[in-house]
């Protein structure tokens, strides 16, 4: 079992202003947008409030079987539903990952919210982009490990999306490295720190990675679908 933890630098995760504006809904971000100064000031402060931690566990080769659900050493591990299972064909191992910006980031948002809702929203948006970026970097690391094992990777999937019930976060958390025991799962399956993402990536010699798009899933209110539609 491979167990890796990373401390990505805050700088490696910082989004540029245009990305932040797009995330906020603006389809054609202008260089001199009226929010640019506020965003720039906020970006300068991010490092003080961020403690990025990301890591994954890669289950042993051939320990996973996929049929209508995911079996680990012949015992039921996850039931992500037919949409995700259709993407996990030929998977023989799994990487289970988590990335978080840390608790200080949540406290920062909470504090600023009392004074300036607009800046709190800017911080929240930056945080969402940073934690996604952390998972992108984690995905690269998982791909490299898979290459060493002569395996390929699927897309990443998280409980709560593509009709995978969020309750399965509990099973997922049991598999996470001990370094992450400070990340808590609420009874509602909400993670704290709030700016955290957990999920799985399937691995296998004969895995075919299909580009991620919303045709997999018919959840009309999914934030990814709404975001894609806004970008059109």
């Amino acid at each position: 079992m491979i167990n890796k933890t990373f401390r990505f630098s805050t700088e490696s995760l910082l989004p540029d202003i245009s990305l932040i504006l797009i995330e906020m809904g603006y389809s054609i971000p202008l260089a001199d947008h009226y929010l640019s100064d506020l965003i720039n000031d906020t970006l300068q402060q991010v490092r003080k409030h961020t403690r990025v931690q990301a890591g994954f566990i890669m289950l042993p080769k051939d320990s996973i079987k996929t049929q209508s659900n995911i079996l680990f050493e012949n015992r039921l591990l996850f039931e992500p539903g037919s949409i995700i299972m259709s993407q996990l064909q030929n998977v023989t191992s799994l990487a289970v990952f988590l990335a978080t910006l840390g608790s200080d980031f949540d406290l920062w948002i909470k504090f600023v919210q009392q004074i300036d809702m607009l800046q709190a929203f800017v911080i929240d948006t930056i945080g969402s982009l940073m934690v996604e970026k952390a998972v992108d970097l984690l995905e690269e690391q998982i791909s490299m490990q898979a290459m060493i094992r002569a395996e390929k990777c699927t897309n990443r999937f998280s409980p709560g999306y593509c009709q995978w019930l969020v309750d399965e976060q509990h099973q997922l958390f049991h598999l996470l490295p001990a370094d992450f025991d400070w990340v808590k799962l609420q009874p509602s399956c909400l993670m704290t720190p709030l700016k955290s993402i957990s999920g799985i990536i399937g691995l296998g010699k004969n895995v075919i990675k299909i580009p991620y798009h919303c045709a997999f899933c018919d959840n009309k209110s999914c934030y990814r679908r709404l975001k894609n539609r806004k970008g059109q």
């Binding site: 906020m24 809904g25 603006y26 929010l35 809702m117 607009l118 929203f121 800017v122 806004k230």
Partner: peptide, 14 residues
């Protein structure tokens, strides 16, 4: 109507 976004609502509310 999707003409303005959350920041505009927040500053209007302020």
């Amino acid at each position: 109507d999707g003409i303005v976004f959350i920041p505009e609502i927040l500053i209007a509310a302020k």
